[in-house]
C-alpha cells in the first residue's frame, strides 16, 4: 500500500491568518505552522516567478525539514513557452529544485498545462522534449484540455515514468474526464473545487472558492484506495485555497483516511 501525503496548493496566503494561522502570525512563520498540520505542500509561487536555490534552502529551514515539497513548474515551461529559451528556463528551475532533491524533500515537479495547450504535433514534440530534459526529476503532469486523455498519451507517460495528475474539477464540457491512470510509481491528485458558475471568466479567487462536502471527500477515499494499490506514494493537494477551505478539506480527508499529519 502506498504512502499517502496530503496538503494544500500553497501555504502563504495572508487571508489564512485568522481561519488557519493565529491572528498576528507573520509571513515568515506560515510554513512552520503549516508543517505542524501537514506533511506536504505544493509550492505554486514558482509558477509566477522562477525559484532560486536560496529560496528553496530557506523553505527547508522554515519547515524544519518536516515537509515534503512538490513544486509547480514555472509558466515559461507550460504557459508562455519560448522555443528559443525554454531550455535555459528549465535549467534554472532544475538547479533551484535540486536543493530539495538533495535533502530528499522533493515530492514531484508539477507541469500544469492550460486548456490552450492542444494535442497537436508541435506541442507533442515540445512535451516530449521537456519531459526528456527534466527527466531526472520526479514529474507529474496535469492537462486541462481533454484531448490529451488518450491511450497514446498514457503510454508515453508510462514509458517516461511521469505521473498523470488525477484532478477534481467542475463537470463542465471541454474539461478533462475523470481519469485515474497509473503511469508512474507515484500518483498525484489535485482538487480544484467544483465551481461550475465561476470556473470560466472569473478570477482565481472566485474559481477556487469552494468547500468540498464530507460526502464528496468520502467518495474520493475510494478512489485513493484504488490508486494506492498501484503506486508507492500518493501526493494529494487541495487547491481550493480561498478562506482556508483547502486546509479544512485536507484535514477532513486525513481523518477519513484514518491518518494523522505524519502519515
Amino acid at each position: 500500500m502506498a504512502t499517502i501525503l496530503i496538503g494544500t496548493s500553497g501555504y502563504s496566503y495572508t487571508e489564512w491568518v485568522g481561519p488557519v494561522y493565529p491572528p498576528g502570525t507573520s509571513q515568515g512563520e506560515y510554513l512552520n505552522l503549516y508543517a505542524q498540520m501537514f506533511s506536504t505542500v505544493e509550492l505554486n509561487f514558482s509558477y509566477y516567478r522562477m525559484p532560486t536555490a536560496d529560496q528553496m534552502t530557506r523553505l527547508l529551514d522554515q519547515s524544519g525539514t518536516q515537509v515534503m515539497f512538490s513544486i509547480k513548474a514555472n509558466e515559461s515551461l507550460t504557459h508562455t513557452i519560448d522555443p528559443d529559451t525554454w531550455k535555459q528556463q528549465a535549467n534554472a528551475f532544475m538547479s533551484a529544485v535540486e536543493v530539495l532533491a538533495g535533502h530528499d524533500k522533493l515530492g514531484a515537479v508539477l507541469l500544469q498545462f492550460p486548456y490552450s495547450f492542444h494535442y497537436d504535433p508541435d506541442r507533442r514534440r515540445y512535451l516530449d522534449a521537456v519531459l526528456r530534459h527534466m527527466g531526472s526529476l520526479p514529474l507529474a503532469i496535469e492537462f486541462r484540455n481533454a484531448q490529451w486523455y488518450n491511450n497514446r498519451t498514457f503510454q508515453a507517460l508510462r514509458e517516461r515514468n511521469v505521473a498523470l495528475a488525477s484532478i477534481d474539477l467542475p463537470a463542465l464540457k471541454g474539461l478533462p474526464p475523470v481519469v485515474d491512470a497509473k503511469t508512474a510509481d507515484i500518483a498525484y491528485i489535485r482538487l480544484h473545487g467544483r465551481n461550475e458558475e465561476t470556473w470560466w471568466g472569473s478570477d482565481a479567487a472566485a474559481r477556487y472558492d469552494y468547500l468540498y462536502s464530507k460526502h464528496e471527500l468520502e467518495t474520493w477515499v475510494e478512489r485513493i484506495r484504488a490508486i494506492a494499490q498501484q503506486v508507492t506514494m500518493i501526493f494529494i493537494y487541495f487547491n481550493n485555497h480561498r478562506r482556508g477551505q483547502a486546509v479544512a478539506n485536507a484535514k477532513t480527508l486525513l481523518q477519513l483516511l484514518g491518518k494523522d499529519r505524519d502519515s
Binding site: N151, P177, A181, K182
Partner: peptide, 27 residues
Amino acid sequence: RAIRPAGIVGIRSGEEADFIAPQDALL
C-alpha cells in the same frame, strides 16, 4: 482499453465522441 491494464475513467454524458476521437483506432 485506453487505460488498461488498470485505472478509472468517467465520461460525462454528451462527451463520448470527444473522448473517443483522439483514441487509437485499434481500440
